[in-house]
Amino acid sequence: MYKLLLLVTVAFADAFAEQPTDIFLLIGQSNMAGHGVVEAQDKRRIPHVFTLTKEKTWVPAIDPIHFDKPSLIGVGLGRSFAATLIQYKAVRSVGLVPAAFGGSALEEWTPGSEHYRNAVARVKVALEGKNARLRGILWHQGEADSTEARSATYAVRFTAFIQQLRADLGTPDCPVLVGQLGEFLKMNLSEKINLQLATLPLSIPHTGFVSSQGLKHKGDEIHFDSPSLREFGRRYALAWLALPSGR
Rank of each mutant, 00 (worst) to 15 (best):
L85F: 06
L169W: 01
N131L: 08
P111C: 07
F224D: 01
D63N: 04
C174W: 04
T110S: 12
F12P: 04
F158A: 13
G74A: 06
G246W: 01
A152V: 07
A90I: 14
P205E: 05
M32W: 03
P111T: 11
P111M: 13
L96W: 05
S104L: 03
S146D: 07
N31R: 06
F24S: 05
E18A: 14
I193K: 04
A237I: 10
H140D: 06
D42P: 02
E183Y: 12
T199K: 15
E128Q: 13
V91L: 09
R79V: 11
G214A: 04
K216Q: 14
L195S: 12
P175S: 06
M187W: 14
T199I: 13
Q41D: 13
A132S: 13
A83H: 10
R79S: 05
T171G: 03
A90N: 05
V123W: 02
F12N: 09
E18T: 15
T171Y: 06
I46D: 11
R92C: 09
A132N: 05
H140K: 08
E231T: 13
L106A: 00
Q213R: 13
L26G: 08
P111R: 09
L238G: 05
V10D: 02
W139P: 01
D220K: 09
E231R: 05
F158T: 14
A237F: 02
Q41E: 14
P64A: 03
A99P: 02
L6S: 05
L72V: 11
Q141M: 12
E143D: 10
Q164E: 07
D42C: 02
F67M: 02
L238D: 10
D63E: 15
Q87S: 12
A144D: 03
R157F: 05
G95Q: 12
V75N: 01
K192Y: 14
I137R: 00
P172K: 03
K192S: 14
G74Y: 02
A237Y: 09
F16T: 15
L72F: 11
T53R: 09
F67D: 10
V37E: 13
